[in-house]
């Protein structure tokens, strides 16, 4: 199975859910099968969010995921660009991408 390597960062308090570690290097399948009836498609950020939940998240899943995407109030950057400019969850990941998740919900 082909894989892609990514650099993941958590900030703004989110790192507390991920072993209190800010920076992670991971490898994920590049063309994961979605459902048995569908052909495999390129891994996108929605897939990555679920992969992180299943493989890296240590506690309190409800503070990370809500309704199949990141909880409102979590900012996502793709290679230092707001994911809202990159198609959000449907952005297709490429080898070497750097994805940053920042919580805005922690104390001012």
């Amino acid at each position: 199975m082909l894989t892609i390597s990514l650099k993941i960062e958590f900030a703004g308090g989110l790192e507390l859910l991920f072993s209190n570690q800010r920076s992670h290097r991971i490898s994920i399948p590049s063309n994961p099968a979605s459902t048995p009836n569908e052909p495999p498609k390129r891994a996108d950020i929605t897939y990555l969010i679920h992969w992180l939940k299943d493989n890296l998240l240590k506690e309190r899943v409800e503070l990370f995921i809500e309704n199949g995407t990141v909880r409102p109030g979590i900012l996502v950057l793709v290679n230092d660009t707001d994911w809202e400019l990159e198609g959000e969850g449907s952005y297709e990941l490429m080898d070497g991408d750097e994805i940053v998740f920042i919580s805005t919900l922690h104390g001012g």
Partner: peptide, 14 residues
């Protein structure tokens, strides 16, 4: 939050 991120300002978030 974006301003702090791009300016690399460090803050406490617990």
């Amino acid at each position: 939050v974006m301003y702090a991120y791009f300016k690399k300002l460090t803050y406490f978030s617990t």
